[in-house]
């Protein structure tokens, strides 16, 4: 199964590209795609606990199913708007 992976910001820089096609035989969920990404690009591991994800432009979870040809995006913590986030 092949999926199109999109990466952004510092995660994109760590992996060295913003878009890649990953061959993930037997993948069923986003977690499998992430594991394949980390296997191919170990630097991505830095975001294992802080990233979120989207599948075909829908916010997703690591347990979300994926299918052949899906676009899977991994999102580092976001910082849009202006100034710092209120916690």
């Amino acid at each position: 199964m092949r999926v199109n992976v999109k990466l952004f910001a510092r995660l994109r820089e760590l992996v060295g590209q913003g878009e890649l096609t990953l061959d993930v035989p037997g993948a069923t969920t986003v977690a499998d795609v992430w594991a394949a990404l980390v296997a191919a690009h170990p630097a991505a591991e830095a975001y294992a606990r802080s990233m979120s994800c989207a599948v075909n432009l829908n916010y997703a979870r690591m347990t979300t199913p994926v299918a052949d040809g899906d676009e899977v995006a991994f999102l580092p913590p976001v910082s849009g708007g202006s100034g710092a986030a209120v916690r």
């Binding site: 952004f8 989207a54 995006a73 580092p76 976001v78 910082s79 849009g80 708007g81 986030a85 209120v86």
Partner: peptide, 14 residues
């Protein structure tokens, strides 16, 4: 709206 933008919108500041 501004608090939600900071929470969920996939935009990154370099």
């Amino acid at each position: 709206a501004i608090e939600r933008i900071k929470q969920i919108v996939p935009i990154w500041k370099h």
